[in-house]
Simulated assay, not measured.
Amino acid sequence: MAEPTGAARTGFFPELDDLARDAAVMAGWLAAAEAAVAEAAGRDPSERVRVVLAALGRVASVEIDPHWRTRIDPGDLRAAVLAACQEAGRRRLETWAAELGRSDGRPGTSAPGRTPDAGPRPVEVASGPAEESSHESIRRLWGLLQEATDRLDDVVRDAAARSRDVLTGRDPGGHVTASLTGGGELTDLTLDETWAAAAGAREIGAALTAAITDGYAAVDRRAREATSQWPFPDLERLSGSPAALLATLGLRNEREG
């Protein structure tokens, strides 16, 4: 990755501004879609198990009908819960896709606070002593980007390996074990059938919810460990805010004075 020079550098900064604006619009679309799927629910074919999903499509609660045993054998309860989870996930994806479909290509759609037809904000390079320091900042940024490019394959491989890991969660009573991928997808449940045959519906639902929640906690711990080893903290800091990035590069938006 070569550092932009001459004419290439002239067009580089307006592109940053365009990317920041487009990212803001996309963030608005995604926020609207996330709000639309704030809660999604699904049932198993017997209509005796209901699963409610919350943020990130995670299971918020598992509800068992008091008369579930009239339609489901204790040994089949695991499959019923997983079926309800899949149905809730399907409904969530359908709602998400429908919301994005309404946003995509809609004339005038924009992120909050942006004038729909406003053109790109021109970016000026500061003159005088700041210009020299901005050139140094540009070289530093490109150095970080080169490092990121060189190490990205390793990061992707590590992330893929973590996503294949199987993590487990258990309820406090030890009656239910939930298995999840490193990415947080619920893949299996193990229930004590003798306990399930005698326990109340609310107790079973609470134990299932607790085991899955404990599994999510294991996923989050693994994610925090990976984040703490993220090899590009400087790049992450610069990319977190377009305004901060422009300031680091010694630039300013003309409209901001």
Rank of each mutant, 00 (worst) to 15 (best):
R224F: 03
E99V: 12
R151G: 15
L180M: 01
W142G: 04
L251T: 01
E132M: 12
R121D: 01
R222F: 08
E39I: 03
C85W: 10
P129E: 06
L56Y: 13
R21M: 03
G108Q: 00
D73T: 15
E39T: 10
V59G: 01
S228Y: 06
G113N: 11
A8S: 03
R255Q: 13
E185V: 10
V37G: 03
A207V: 04
T227M: 09
D17I: 01
A54M: 07
T95R: 15
D153I: 08
V49G: 04
A196L: 00
R92Q: 12
A79F: 14
R170L: 05
T109C: 05
A88I: 06
A33H: 04
F232S: 01
H135A: 08
R50V: 13
D22K: 12
D17W: 00
P116D: 04
A31E: 11
R164P: 01
A247T: 14
G11F: 00
R71K: 14
T115V: 13
E256K: 13
R202S: 12
G11I: 04
V176W: 05
A207F: 02
T187V: 10
L246Q: 04
E131C: 07
D117M: 08
E147F: 10
R71T: 08
A159H: 13
T248N: 13
V37Q: 07
S239E: 05
T227H: 09
D154T: 14
R222N: 12
A207D: 05
P129K: 01
F12H: 03
T149N: 13
A148L: 05
A2T: 14
R139H: 12
V125H: 04
V219Q: 09
D214A: 15
A198R: 15
A98S: 07
C85P: 07
R221S: 14
E131A: 15
D76R: 15
E94M: 01
E124K: 09
L145S: 04
S134D: 00
E203D: 08
M26G: 00
L19R: 03
T209R: 01
A207G: 02
E193G: 11
L77P: 07
P242Y: 05
H175C: 08
V176Y: 07
E132P: 03
G128C: 08
D153F: 09
A20K: 06
L249W: 08
P116N: 01
L249D: 01
D22C: 11
T227G: 11
S46G: 02
E87M: 07
V62W: 01
G257L: 11
I204H: 02
A178Q: 00
V52N: 09
E87V: 07
R162W: 08
R91T: 06
E15Y: 09
A80Y: 10
A197K: 11
A97Y: 10
R202W: 06
P231Q: 00
T209Q: 03
S110K: 04
G182V: 10
E236Q: 10
A98M: 03
A54R: 12
R50Q: 15
R48S: 05
P45D: 05
P107S: 07
R139E: 14
T248V: 00
R58Q: 15
A201I: 05
E254P: 08
R237G: 00
A198S: 14
A32K: 10
T70H: 13
V51Y: 02
V166L: 13
A8G: 00
L208N: 04
P172A: 02
F12T: 06
C85E: 12
P120T: 06
L249A: 05
R71D: 13
L141D: 01
V156N: 10
A38I: 01
